[in-house]
Amino acid sequence: MIIGLSHFLVVSAILFGLGLLTVATRRNAVAILMGVELILNAAALNFVAFSHYVEGAVTGMVFALFIIVLAAAEAAIALAIVLAIFRHFHSIDANDVSTLKD
């Protein structure tokens, strides 16, 4: 079986779906963060896949690299925020911090 582009895309879609599900259903902020990471990775996978199957294109790779760096940075900031939230609310339940709406 030749692994083609559609395989990558299916994996990526599954990853994306899982990530989305995690973000949508989990209330733990860290878990939501993990879901976001999954979504980002799904996107990165897509970029790499397309880049591989298009002749002479490296842009996708560059994007993937950027996404990895971005994800790392985002994770650092997000964890810092989570930490701050925990300090303030003594909870990392995302529903507990929805004070801005009032």
């Binding site: 989305l20 973000v23 949508a24 259903t25 989990r26 209330r27 939501i32 995302a94 529903n95 929805s98 004070t99 801005l100 709406k101």
Partner: peptide, 17 residues
């Protein structure tokens, strides 16, 4: 409209999806 804004990320994400 403010009722829509629950402040819960999960709802928003669901909405986005």
């Amino acid at each position: 409209l403010r009722r829509v804004q629950t402040g819960r990320i999960n709802n928003y994400v669901l909405g986005v999806a």
